[in-house]
Amino acid sequence: MKMPAENSYLSRLNQDSGIRMKRKLIISDRLIASILRRRLKWAPGAVDIVQHVHEVEAKVNRHPYDFIITDAHVQGTRSADHLQYLRAQCPTAKIIVLDHDRGSLRESSETLSLHRVALPMTLDQISDLINTIGQ
């Protein structure tokens, strides 16, 4: 799979300069992800946005993400499997789960050391929360 230009650039930058840039991933509907990215003032090049499980696997296998925001349920997989997979692939990443409280994800969030955010909440609340967790 061909990597987006900004990701290739980031990868080269990471390798060449020895400086590791923070890499972020948002797994959600593209509109939701784009609102979040803008609200969090993250540069487009520093964030990957995916919404289907195929894309998640392709991305997570290639890049060591530091910060992941994900929907509790992702198209094409089960919530529990998805979260377990993310934790296994990115053991040190901070993972935030956007949960509509429709599944019983409280337990698995705790077991896998994930930050669960119960939705809906205001954009300001959610961006504050994510910034706090990210620090």
Partner: peptide, 12 residues
């Protein structure tokens, strides 16, 4: 439809 989707996530 899109606004309803957004409202599912964020209160606005």
């Amino acid at each position: 439809d899109q606004l309803r989707l957004v409202q599912d996530y964020f209160s606005l």
